[in-house]
Every structure is written in structure tokens, then in C-alpha cells.
């Protein structure tokens, strides 16, 4: 940074292009990364076959890094939207701590490192799915569909659904019904999760001009969509219980979890906008929170089944 640029920012507390480590770390969307790490671990752990523990750990680390890199690239592309939305206004780029160019360079470099290292550590199939995930999230979702179609969340959800598939491929070197079902569960889970958020963060998406379902088709249609997707999700989530990665414990747990989730979606569907406004979107907020626990619990039980299998307790 030149002195001239320093002088031009004498009235600001933060100076561009001098972000700290925490600012760059924030570009990786650490909270989203938690989900990526966990689901990738479950995919890897539940997969048939052996992987050296260190290789497994390295694989998860670079899957997470690839996910983080796509988060940084997404923040680079969506900086204009982030500046408008209340929820994202304090992110490193809108707040001026990191420049757009820095975020782009950071994201591209980390993407390349993550894909190459995953390839070296495991196999080309896992690396190729990771590369496709990053491409899909940035080019297909962020650049193309997010600002164009109200089904943006549905399509964007696919990017977040790949990690267990990558974890599975890291061990087996391929794709199977089980890994495809794990993908489908996250794919179907994402829309109700985000639409619930869109219902109670109402003005944000309107202000940013993102064609969210709540904006384009109305809030009643969004409530119907949440219920339909939750029902479809329940079928998949219980269905995977009858495959190789499932077992009696998983089936029992998934039936209970899906019953809770459907109950939440049903309550959202029944409510009118007046009811929701009256109690400040209490049900929608509770459903959003439940959706996070739901996914962690569902994948947690898949891992539990895999962990119990060596003792003759897990699986069918």
C-alpha cells in the first residue's frame, strides 16, 4: 500500500488492503465450513474401504479449504449485494478491510491448492468433484442463477450437498447410490432451511434485488414450498436408512427427526403472514434453528452406524 492511499483514508478506521488474519479467515465462511467438514467426514467415515487416518484428515482439511475458497470467491462476486443486506454488511469486503481483488486472488489460489492437494492425497475422482463444486457454486450459482431465478436456493443447495460425496469418493474412488442419497438429502434440505430464513429476514433480499421466492412468488407460495420440500426430504432421509450406510438406529432416529421437521413445516404452512408478524416470526425462527440440528443429527447417526458396525451393532 502506498502512502498516498493511506492519506486518502484518514477519516476511516479501517484501511483497505490491510486486512488482518481474521478478515481473511472470515472470507472462508467458517460457519458454513462446519457443515462442510462434518458432512465430508461422515461421507468418508461411512464409505466402505480403508483410508489411512492421516490421509482422511488431510482429505477433510482440503475439502473444507475448497469450500472456504468458494466462499471467498462468492464474497468477491456478491460484494455489491453484501453491501446492501443488513446480515452481510460487516463482511470483510463491504466493510473495506479486504479489497475485492484480494478476495479474488485468495479464493482462486486456495481453490487450486485444495483441488491439487486432494488429488495427491486421495484420487482424481474426489478432486474432480471438489473442482466441479467450486465451479458450480461460483459460475453456475453465484454468477448466473442467483440473480436470475427464484429457484436460486434450490440450485445453490447442490454446491453445499457435494461434500459427503467427495468424502465418499476419497475412500472408494467413485460414486454410489449411498453417496448420491447423502447428496440428495442436503440438496432437499437447503431450500426449506433458507426459505425459513428469507421469511423472517424479509427486507434484506428485497433491498438487494435478489429474486428470492418470497419476493417473486410471495410469502404464501414460500410457505407451501417449504412444506413440499420437507416432505420430499423426509422420503429421502428415511430411505437412505435401508441402504448400506443405514441401520435400525438410523431408521428410528430419522423417522423421529423427520416427524419433528415435518411438524415445523406444517406449522409454517398453516400460518398466515399476520400470525407470523404478531409473534415476530417465532415459528419460522424455530424451524430455521431446528433445520441445523436436524441435518447434524441425521448425519451424526449415519456416522454412529458406521462406528458401531465393527462391533456388530451398526448397519443391517
Amino acid at each position: 500500500m502506498s502512502d498516498a492511499s493511506l492519506n486518502s483514508h484518514t477519516h476511516t478506521t479501517t484501511l483497505p488492503s490491510d486486512g488482518g488474519f481474521s478478515d481473511f479467515f472470515a472470507l472462508l465462511k467458517p460457519r458454513v465450513m462446519t457443515l462442510v467438514v462434518f458432512t465430508a467426514f461422515v461421507g468418508l467415515y461411512a464409505a466402505p474401504g480403508d483410508i489411512h487416518p492421516l490421509v482422511g484428515l488431510i482429505a477433510i482439511l482440503f475439502i473444507a479449504l475448497g469450500g472456504g475458497a468458494s466462499g471467498a470467491l462468492n464474497m468477491w462476486w456478491d460484494a455489491d449485494i453484501d453491501r446492501v443486506m443488513r446480515r452481510t454488511r460487516n463482511r470483510p469486503i463491504p466493510s473495506g478491510r479486504v479489497t475485492e481483488r484480494e478476495a479474488f486472488g485468495f479464493g482462486i489460489t486456495l481453490s487450486a491448492i485444495a483441488v491439487v492437494m486432494l488429488w495427491l492425497a486421495t484420487n482424481w475422482v474426489a478432486a474432480a468433484i471438489l473442482a466441479f463444486t467450486i465451479f458450480f457454486y461460483i459460475v453456475i450459482y453465484s454468477m448466473w442463477l442467483k440473480r436470475w431465478t427464484p429457484q436460486n436456493i434450490v440450485i445453490g443447495g447442490a454446491a453445499g450437498a457435494f461434500p459427503p460425496m467427495i468424502g465418499w469418493a476419497a475412500v472408494t474412488g467413485g460414486i454410489s447410490l449411498e453417496s448420491a442419497l447423502m447428496f440428495s438429502i442436503i440438496f432437499m434440505w437447503t431450500p426449506p432451511h433458507f426459505w425459513a430464513l428469507a421469511l423472517f429476514m424479509r427486507s434484506d433480499y428485497d433491498d438487494a434485488g435478489v429474486p428470492m421466492l418470497t419476493v417473486t412468488h410471495g410469502r404464501r407460495a414460500t410457505r407451501v414450498h417449504i412444506l413440499v420440500y420437507t416432505l420430499l426430504l423426509a422420503g429421502l432421509a428415511v430411505g437412505i436408512g435401508f441402504t448400506m450406510v443405514g441401520g435400525p438406529i438410523y431408521v428410528a432416529a430419522s423417522v423421529a427427526l423427520n416427524a419433528l421437521f415435518i411438524k415445523g413445516a406444517w406449522q409454517i404452512w398453516r400460518r398466515s403472514e399476520e400470525d407470523a408478524e404478531a409473534d415476530n416470526y417465532k415459528v419460522e425462527k424455530a424451524f430455521f434453528k431446528l433445520s441445523l440440528y436436524y441435518l447434524f443429527a441425521l448425519f451424526g447417526v449415519i456416522a454412529l452406524e458406521a462406528g458401531l458396525a465393527p462391533f456388530g451393532l451398526g448397519g443391517w
Binding site: 488482518g20 488474519f21 481473511f24 479467515f25 488431510i58 482439511l61
Partner: peptide, 27 residues
């Protein structure tokens, strides 16, 4: 404060590079 942020960034990058070397060695 600028120096603190630069220091944290440099330290983070240094540790990340050391970590990468350790990972490649272990692998």
C-alpha cells in the same frame, strides 16, 4: 492498529505455510 493487522496476517500466513509443509511431509 494497522501494524497489528499486518502482523496477524503475516503470522497467519507463516503458520499456514508451515502447516502445508508438515502436511506434505506427513502425506
Amino acid at each position: 492498529e494497522l501494524h497489528k493487522r499486518r502482523f496477524s496476517r503475516n503470522m497467519g500466513l507463516g503458520l499456514a505455510l508451515i502447516g502445508l509443509v508438515a502436511i506434505v511431509f506427513g502425506l
